[in-house]
C-alpha cells in the first residue's frame, strides 16, 4: 500500500496540497470558459478528488523504473503511456459530469465545451508532476535508508571493537601478573587502557590517517602479545608512504583480531601474523595473513568482523575499494585495496 494511504497524517497533508491545485485549475477554467463559480466547482471538484487518488499510482511504476537504471526513451514512453491511461480514465468521467451538469444548470453544455482541452492538459501536467514527486520521494527514502545502514554498520563496528572475550582475558592476564611481576601487570594495564582510549575516540571520527589505524592495531597486538606470549609472532612491512592515506577507522584492527581469534588462538604452537602495506600515491594496498588450523570448525573461522570491514570500506569508497579473501591450505589472507585520498581527515 502507498505510504500516504497508510498514515492518516500524511493523507491529510496530501489532500490539503490538492486544494490550491484545485483552485488553480478551477479559476483557469472559469476564466477561459467564462463559467460562474457554481458550475466551475461542479466540474472541477470531482475531477480533482479523482486525480488526487490516481496520482498515487505512479509509485509502483517509479519503483520499477528507477531514474538511474532505466534508459531515457523507456522512461518517457512508459510514463507517457501511463499518463494517457489516466486520461482515458478521466475523460468519460468528465463527459458524465458535463452531461449531468447540463441537466442541472441552464445552458451548461454549450459554454463548458471550450474547457475540455484545458482540463485534459491540466490532468496530464498534474499526473507528470506526481511522477516527479514520487521520484523525489523515492530518492529521499533511499538516502535515508543509506544513512541508517551506515549508522548500523558504525554501531556494529563499535560493538565488535571491544570484544568482551578480549577484555576479560586481558584482565585475567593482569590478574595473573600482579603476583608474578607487578611492573608487567602495570604495563599491561597501560597498554589495555591505551587501546580502549584510542578505539573509543575513533568511533566519533569519519576518517583517520592509515598510520593512526595501524597504531590502534599495534596497541591491540601488544596487549594480545602478553596473553599469547611466544605463540603470537608478528611480522610487519608497512611502507612509510601509506601513512598519510585516509581510511575509515577500525579497518585494520578487526582484521588483526580475526587473525588471532580464528587463527593463532586455535594453534597449539601459535603462528605468525604478517602484515604488508604499500602505496603508489593513488592506491593503498594492505594485506594481512595468518596461519590457521584447517581442522578447526569452520564456524570458528568466519566472523562478523570481516563483514564490518567490508561494509565500512564500501560505505566510504564504493566500488573503488576491494576486499579479497584467499585461503590456501593453512593460510588465510585478507587483501584490501582502496584509493589513497588525503586531507579528508576529520578531527
Amino acid at each position: 500500500m502507498h505510504p500516504i494511504l497508510t498514515n492518516p497524517r500524511y493523507l491529510l497533508m496530501y489532500l490539503a496540497a490538492w486544494v490550491p491545485l484545485g483552485l488553480m485549475v478551477g479559476s483557469m477554467l472559469s476564466l477561459s470558459a467564462h463559467l460562474p463559480w457554481r458550475e466551475t466547482t461542479w466540474i472541477t471538484a470531482p475531477l480533482i478528488v479523482l486525480l488526487a487518488f490516481l496520482c498515487l499510482a505512479p509509485l509502483y511504476m517509479c519503483r520499477a523504473l528507477p531514474v538511474g537504471g532505466t534508459s531515457v526513451p523507456k522512461l518517457i514512453i512508459n510514463h507517457l503511456l501511463a499518463a494517457l491511461a489516466i486520461l482515458a480514465i478521466v475523460q468519460p468521467f468528465l463527459f458524465l459530469d458535463l452531461k449531468t451538469g447540463s441537466e442541472v444548470f441552464h445552458d451548461f453544455d454549450r459554454r463548458s465545451l471550450p474547457g475540455m482541452p484545458l482540463l485534459t492538459t491540466s490532468t496530464l501536467l498534474l499526473y507528470l508532476l506526481a511522477v516527479g514527486g514520487h521520484y523525489a520521494g523515492l530518492a529521499a527514502e533511499s538516502t535515508r535508508r543509506a544513512q541508517v545502514l551506515a549508522r548500523d554498520a558504525e554501531l556494529r563496528a563499535l560493538k565488535a571493537q571491544v570484544n568482551p572475550h578480549f577484555l576479560f582475558n586481558s584482565l585475567n592476564s593482569i590478574s595473573a601478573l600482579t603476583s608474578i611481576d607487578a611492573s608487567r601487570a602495570r604495563d599491561m594495564c597501560v597498554k589495555l587502557s591505551e587501546f580502549l582510549r584510542l578505539s573509543l575516540r575513533l568511533g566519533e571520527r569519519g576518517s583517520i590517517p592509515f598510520n593512526e589505524e595501524m597504531e590502534v592495531a599495534r596497541t591491540y597486538l601488544s596487549v594480545e602479545q602478553v596473553r599469547f606470549g611466544r605463540r603470537l609472532r608478528v611480522l610487519e612491512e608497512i611502507a612509510a608512504s601509506c601513512g598519510t592515506c585516509d581510511v575509515p577507522p577500525l579497518l585494520i584492527q578487526p582484521l588483526v583480531e580475526n587473525a588471532i581469534k580464528h587463527g593463532i588462538a586455535n594453534l597449539v604452537d601459535g603462528g605468525e601474523i604478517a602484515m604488508t602495506g604499500t602505496c603508489d600515491g593513488r592506491t593503498l594496498r594492505f594485506s594481512i595473513q595468518n596461519e590457521f588450523d584447517p581442522d578447526a570448525p569452520v564456524g570458528k573461522r568466519s566472523g562478523i568482523g570481516l563483514r564490518n570491514v567490508r561494509d565500512r570500506l564500501t560505505a566510504r569508497f564504493g566500488a573503488a575499494a576491494q576486499l579479497k579473501v584467499d585461503i590456501e591450505e593453512n593460510r588465510y589472507r585478507v587483501t584490501i585495496s582502496a584509493p589513497c585520498e588525503k586531507g579528508r581527515v576529520s578531527a
Binding site: N169, N172, S173, S175, A176, L177, I180, V226, R227, F228, G229, A265, V268
Partner: peptide, 8 residues
C-alpha cells in the same frame, strides 16, 4: 592454552 591463566 594461556600460561598466565594456568598460573592463576
Amino acid at each position: 592454552d594461556e600460561e598466565l591463566a594456568r598460573h592463576v
